[in-house]
Amino acid sequence: MFDCVDPKSLEGLTWLACYLTTGKHMAFYASFATVLFLLALTAPLAMLFGFGGALASRSAVLPLRLFGKGYIAMVRGIPDIVFFLFMPIAIDQLLETVRHKLLCPDVVEPIRRGNDFVVCTAAKLPLGAADQWVHELYGFLLASLSFAIVFGAFAGNTLYGAMQAVPRAQLETASAYGMTQRQIFWRILMPQMWVYALPGLSNLWQILIKATPLLFLLGVEDIVYWARELGGAKTSAFSYPHPDWRLYYFLFLLIFYLMLTQLSERVFGWLIRKTDHGALSAHAARAGS
């Protein structure tokens, strides 16, 4: 390894190597993992919420149907950024309120005092004494949950539309052969729905990737935050002074996002081919004829 003890005396490649391996740069590299981890956590969770929303929207039970439709319509109608700012705080306060009621039943003062939100010490999340990483993880999980709720609504809308798009005749034939509603759902509707859902879900996934910089708004230090932080001009007061390099940092992010997009396109392309079997084009041709 290079000896990076005295950065001022370094030159050329050695300087660069030392510069790129500073603690802050390591945090920058780790934030790529944060973004990927957020995607890995949010996508399945959003699909889960999406399925919940879509199934509720199709339910024969009126309150459930209203809940499903309400969820999808509300989240879609409200600007994302409002939701991203609102959800983590709302979820945090909800959890703390519940804990406050359970853990500190003796406290008589109201939780809301003017603009302040005050719960007893035992109800705080995470607890004041918790390690820094617990705070960060908690914030990250709140952020993921908010992402999942917002994207779940969009996924729910896509899935609902896809379920409606499966030709009625396909389902009717199944009931003509004695299948129960449950069998029709699992054996016919679900496998056929993907053909209609995947293009929309692919779009949504791309939007989710591009929305990850919003993490910064939620207090999670993501790749865009670090690129801006590290790329900015550094005076000689810093160990590694350099002019404004943000362009290079952002170009690096651009490559990262493009590669992620490219990879996703391939995966979705494969999935669409795998689920289609020429059915979509066949239905389209029939509808057009």
């Binding site: 034939t173 199944a174 016919i188 056929q192 059915a279 066949a282």
Partner: peptide, 17 residues
């Protein structure tokens, strides 16, 4: 009843997947 009477449809309706 439905399993004892099999239906053949005008548009075939084979399950496309």
């Amino acid at each position: 009843i439905r399993t004892n009477l099999s239906m053949v449809f005008q548009q075939f309706n084979l399950w496309s997947h």
